[in-house]
Design a protein around this nucleic acid. Structure first.
Length: 492
RNA sequence: GGCCCAUUGGUCAAGCGGUCAAGACACCGCCCUUUCACGGCGGUAACCCGGGUUCGAUUCCCGGAUGGGUCACCA
């Protein structure tokens, strides 16, 4: 039987970085085994409906290159469903759940519960006060189907609960944790169908995973404690349970579950900042999984080829932005100048450096600038912090070091001579930069750091930065001349 | 608190009874470079604590400690 995996998010608005990894592992495992990877939307909580969330999530996932074979997809900007096991949106499967809950009711594995919220709360309070595990007390367990029907017809609200046997150990094998057993006394008669007619997660996952032929349930470790309920439900249906694979959490620097308070957790945040999909995916693949060989940089194809569930870690890993940056910087360096330029333009516009129109008119110039800066970026959005030297009109020494360089006694002479060379130049390209330094050196005897560094400050205000000839080329004649004029007038 | 899970350098992690305990990020130093990055080379730095089992435990077992997860008509 071919492998079928699924990523089943609840459409609450964005894709958490941990969810991306879950989706990725599902995808990698399926592809590795020539199987299918499915996207199912778990929208059984009507109170949590968020407009456009599904579209947003699909967008983020496809940005990352984690593409599903079946499920909700966007075609011609419309949300449609693809595959033979649909619908893939749980709110469209209500009749399926109704049919299946009936089966459990008939087999005695589930029962109607008419307890009010108040009663249940009171029971739980009392249990807590006594130091007991708060759980449903089984008040309605004994209600017969006939009585239940009567009460339902009378309009009483109800839920349907799973009827757990007493004191029984539920066993299952988790692919990453191994054997796990939980006693039913430590479990609750979980609500399967809510009073609004929607299934709970615990019921819908089991029904859907079975009906959709899912062979491997790969999900976050927060589901580990509720897996016994699912296992029991499979059993109640007489179904074969899939393999369970519970992934360790991704943590904050303080080792707590990655949360919004402490920085970026949504893949949308990383897209916005200008991370490349290859970078994020490559990094995230490495938190919770390690390859056999000492490899760090992986394309999606390589990940697919090398991925294996038995190399998934058992314990949570801290999300390390430094390492993400390192990997992302690698991909930025490998990318074409045009690609990075295209990504950089919105940032440059937002920062007010260029307008929409200029982005088009001066595109080639922007590409040249990006070529100079590319090697300095961890993520594309960072470019707005590095680009000032190409846009500013007034050169002021950036720091003490730059100011000192400008005070050297040969600087006026240097400025004069450099300006002259630029005025005479036909074209200002990289070669010009290289040549002019040689000429000045020959004519004046000024050389090495004494030559390059003051010129750098003269032109950029900074004592450090990218290769001078490159900067000279990007700056161009007019810029260089006006900058030297400014410095001569104000600073020398 | 009950239950479940985990524990190798600051971080990600390899290791699967005998190793000088890999590698990467970060950090430090050197080289390259007019400078800063990049790159290259090198360095600092770890098996949570007790008991067992064994000729021998980071590796296996049991306790403890610590951390995390979970205890909803949310997923």
């Amino acid at each position: 039987m071919s492998v079928r995996t699924r990523f089943a998010p609840s459409p609450t608005g964005f894709v958490h970085i941990g969810s991306l990894r879950t989706a990725l592992y599902n995808y990698l495992f399926a592809k590795k085994h020539q199987g299918q990877y499915i996207l199912r939307i778990e929208d059984t909580d009507q109170n949590r409906y968020v407009e456009g969330a599904v579209e947003g999530m699909i967008h983020a996932l496809s940005w990352a290159g984690v593409c599903h074979d079946e499920g909700a997809v966007i075609e011609e900007s419309k949300l449609v469903q693809k595959g033979d096991y649909g619908p893939y949106i749980q709110s469209e499967r209500l009749d399926i759940y109704k049919k299946h809950i009936q089966q459990l009711l008939e087999s005695g594995h589930a029962y109607h519960c008419f307890c009010s919220k108040d009663r249940i709360d009171a029971v739980r309070e009392e249990q807590k006060a006594k130091g007991m595990l708060p759980k449903y007390d089984g008040h309605c367990r004994g209600i017969s189907v006939e009585e239940a029907i009567k009460r339902i017809e009378a309009g009483e609200p109800y839920v349907i609960r799973l009827k757990l046997p007493h004191n029984r150990d539920i066993h299952f094998q988790d692919v990453v944790r191994g054997h796990v057993a939980v006693n039913t006394e430590d479990m609750d008669d979980q609500v399967l169908m809510k009073s609004d007619g929607f299934p709970t997660y615990h019921f819908a996952v089991v029904v859907d995973d079975h009906l959709m032929g899912i062979t491997h349930v790969i999900r976050g470790e927060e589901w580990l404690p509720s897996t016994p309920k699912h296992v029991f439900t499979y059993e109640a249906f007489g179904w074969k349970a899939p393999e369970f694979v519970h992934l360790p959490n991704i943590l904050n620097a303080d080792k707590k579950k990655l949360s919004k308070r402490q920085g970026d957790v949504a893949v949308e945040d990383f897209i916005r900042k200008g991370y490349l999909p290859e970078g994020l995916v490559n990094y995230i693949a490495l938190v919770g999984w390690s390859p056999e060989e000492n490899q760090e940089i992986f394309s999606m194809e390589e990940l697919i080829a090398q991925f294996s569930l038995d190399r998934v870690s058992k314990s949570g890993g801290v999300f390390d932005t430094d390492k993400l940056n390192y990997i992302n910087a690698h991909y930025i360096k490998e990318s074409s100048d045009e690609r990075i330029t295209d990504l950089a333009i919105p940032h440059l516009i937002a920062a007010g450096y260029i307008t929409d129109l200029e982005a088009k008119e001066r595109y080639q110039w922007l590409v040249d600038m990006v070529r100079v800066l590319k090697g300095y970026l961890s993520y594309v959005g960072e470019i707005t912090q590095k680009v000032d030297m190409f846009f500013k009109k007034e050169i002021e020494p950036e720091d003490q070091e730059a100011a000192e360089l400008l005070k050297l006694e040969h600087v006026p002479q240097l400025a004069e001579l450099f300006e002259q060379k630029v005025i005479e130049a036909e074209i200002i390209d990289e070669e010009f930069g290289k040549r002019v330094f040689k000429e000045i050196q020959k004519e004046t005897g000024i050389k090495g750091q004494n030559l390059f560094r003051p010129v750098r400050v003269l032109l950029t205000g900074s004592a450090h930065g990218p290769d001078m000839p490159l900067i000279i080329k990007v700056l161009g004649k007019q810029n260089i001349l006006s900058r030297i004029e400014y410095v001569k007038e104000h600073l020398l």
